[in-house]
């Protein structure tokens, strides 16, 4: 890419959505977002000669994005993976238990914007790493192996984090709808 701005522009265009997803999920509305994105692309261009075609280029850029965000969060000593899985999440094991709350069909009642807002609200209960994993798996439809490549976490850990994140979000969703009394 020696001086080839066209190739660089193409690279940015093709990866910016994925980079944005990771930066937003990891940092939220942090004021350093722009600086961090610049840092991600600077690293990408600097280390491009080290890219050995062992994964997709987008996965490699995502890997740089994730580690850059992680370093940034660690600098501020923010909680990255601890999740509250207290008693409030435990459910009964037999059919005799009462059912609380009802959920309207996703396609009904609410607009996409409203659903996005609800999800945004629910996601605040999750630590950044969980938010990112959930988005990469369910929204970006990446495989567990691709997420492993991006995050450097073992496959088992990725699956475990996804499981826990889904459970927390599901409980929050049920609580949300029982409170909203829909």
């Amino acid at each position: 890419m020696d001086g080839d701005r066209h190739a660089a522009t193409l690279l940015v265009r093709r990866t910016e959505k994925l980079v944005a997803q990771i930066v937003f999920k990891m940092l939220g509305n942090h004021p350093d977002r722009k600086d961090l994105t610049q840092d991600i692309y600077l690293k990408t261009f600097r280390y491009l000669p080290r890219f050995r075609f062992q994964c997709k280029l987008s996965t490699w850029v995502a890997q740089i994005s994730y580690t850059t965000c992680l370093d940034h969060l660690q600098k501020y000593r923010l909680e990255l993976i601890t999740i509250s899985t207290g008693d409030e999440l435990s459910l009964g094991n037999t059919c005799s238990q009462e059912i609380s709350g009802d959920i309207p069909d996703a396609s009904q009642l609410l607009s996409i914007k409203e659903r996005s807002e609800i999800l945004e609200k629910l996601s605040t209960t999750l630590p950044p790493v969980y938010r990112t994993l959930i988005t990469l798996f369910h929204k970006e439809e990446l495989s567990v192996e691709e997420i492993r490549d991006i995050t450097g976490l073992p496959v088992g850990t990725v699956k475990n984090y996804l499981f826990r994140a889904r459970k927390v979000l599901k409980e929050s969703l049920l609580n949300h709808y029982s409170k909203e009394d829909l």
Partner: peptide, 15 residues
């Protein structure tokens, strides 16, 4: 419902 919410969520756009 949760999965559909995630799938349909707006992709963030860099400002």
């Amino acid at each position: 419902t949760l999965y559909s919410y995630i799938r349909e969520a707006k992709t963030p756009i860099l400002d």
